[in-house]
Design a protein around this nucleic acid. Structure first.
Length: 145
DNA sequence: GCCAACGTTGGC
DNA sequence: GCCAACGTTGGC
C-alpha cells in the first residue's frame, strides 16, 4: 500500500464535487505532466491519498482511495496521457493547512513543500500518518491495512 | 495581480 | 542536443 496526494483547485474540482461521485469514483483527468502521470502509473487499487485544495484554502481536506489503476485519460485525444480513478473516503475533521505542514519539522521533506507545482505526489507512510493525526483522524481508520 | 519556479517547445 | 523563449502553476 502506498500513499499519495492529489492537488486540485477547488474552483475546478473540489472535494465536495469528488464526494458527490460516491463510491463509483471519478477519473482524475486533465493531468498533462509526465511526472504526475508516472506516479499515477505506479498506483494500485486500494492505495490511499490526500485531497489537497490549492490556491483557495491551501489545505488537505480529505482522504481518497484509488479505485481504478491508470488507464487512458478520456479527455485526451493524443493517447499520451493517463489517469487513475479515485473516490472520496473521508473528510478531515480539521483541514491541515500548508502553513501547518511547513511548520511541522517532521513534514519538511513532503513533496508538497519542496515541489509545490507537482499536482500528483507520493507521500511517505510516516507523513501520511502524521497529517491524518493533525487533521483529527486516527490513522488506523484510514490507512486500510 | 505578481512573480518565481518549473516544464515544454522549437530554432539552431 | 542545447538553450532561449514561452506558458502554466500556485504561493504570496
Amino acid at each position: 500500500m502506498r500513499y499519495w496526494l492529489f492537488k486540485s483547485e477547488p474552483f475546478k474540482w473540489s472535494f465536495e464535487a469528488q464526494k458527490d461521485k460516491g463510491d463509483a469514483g471519478q477519473e482524475w483527468d486533465g493531468v498533462r505532466n509526465y511526472q504526475a502521470r508516472n506516479f499515477m502509473r505506479e498506483m494500485a487499487v486500494g492505495d490511499r491519498g490526500f485531497f489537497y485544495h490549492s490556491n483557495e484554502g491551501k489545505e488537505v481536506v480529505g482522504i481518497v482511495e484509488v479505485v481504478a489503476e491508470a488507464h487512458p485519460d478520456s479527455t485526451d485525444g493524443t493517447g499520451k496521457w493517463e489517469c487513475v480513478d479515485i473516490k472520496a473516503v473521508k473528510d478531515l475533521p480539521r483541514p491541515v493547512t500548508l502553513d501547518e505542514v511547513k511548520a511541522e519539522p517532521r513534514l519538511k521533506d513532503m513533496v508538497l513543500v519542496n515541489n509545490s507545482r507537482l499536482s500528483v505526489q507520493p507521500v511517505e507512510e510516516s507523513e501520511f500518518r502524521l497529517v491524518c493525526e493533525l487533521g483529527g483522524l486516527d490513522p488506523k481508520d484510514v490507512m486500510g491495512g
